[in-house]
């Protein structure tokens, strides 16, 4: 892919685009291909960011990127994953974990996610179907991004009234 991605501002809650289910996208639409490149560029430019979904750039659409390469909690690693119209086909081995989000920068939450998932979607550009099985941190990241495409934040999944925590500032 030769599309040059631009780093774009990430929108934050309570922006309404983050709370609305996003429509499916046409994976062969050049604007979708450009948006995928922008998501990747913006993720790359954001330290500690392992995934970003189109609504976080203010665009309602089922498109996201994930890359957990080098993350200490990652076991299975597929490198850069870019998917349109993705859905979870199977989800097993539910586990609690702490997660945060660039669109909710000051908070983290305890969220139970499937430790093993099969996800299906289509690749931007070609529109080819993609199916991938993964586990642990990569599975968590995919579920978080698919939630963004459905208008859900990790706040909508937290495990209890005291499962939200202020994010510590690390220097």
């Amino acid at each position: 892919m030769t599309t040059h991605g631009r780093v774009r501002p990430v929108v934050r809650a309570p922006h309404p685009v983050l709370s609305r289910p996003a429509p499916e996208v046409d994976p062969t639409d050049p604007e979708v291909v450009q948006l995928a490149a922008d998501l990747l560029a913006t993720m790359r430019a954001s330290p500690g960011c392992v995934g970003l979904a189109a609504p976080q750039l203010g665009v309602p659409g089922q498109l996201f990127v994930v890359d957990v390469t080098g993350h200490p909690k990652a076991t299975t690693v597929h490198g850069v994953i870019t998917l349109c119209n993705a859905r979870i086909v199977t989800a097993t081995r539910w586990r609690p974990g702490r997660e945060g989000c660039m669109s909710v920068p000051d908070l983290t939450g305890d969220v139970k996610r499937a430790g093993r998932v099969v996800v299906e979607g289509v690749a931007p550009g070609t529109g080819e179907p993609v199916s991938l099985a993964t586990e642990a941190f990569e599975a968590r990241a995919l579920q978080h991004e698919i939630d963004h495409c459905a208008g859900l934040l990790f706040l909508d999944r937290v495990a209890g009234a005291h499962a939200i925590h202020p994010r510590k500032v690390y220097l």
């Binding site: 934050r12 809650a13 309570p14 909710v104 000051d106 908070l107 706040l155 937290v158 209890g160 009234a161 005291h162 499962a163 939200i164 202020p166």
Partner: peptide
Amino acid sequence: TDLSTRLSGDLYLLVAE
């Protein structure tokens, strides 16, 4: 049975059991 609310920047948040 349990409730917390929080104002974080512009974001208002409520979680209740």
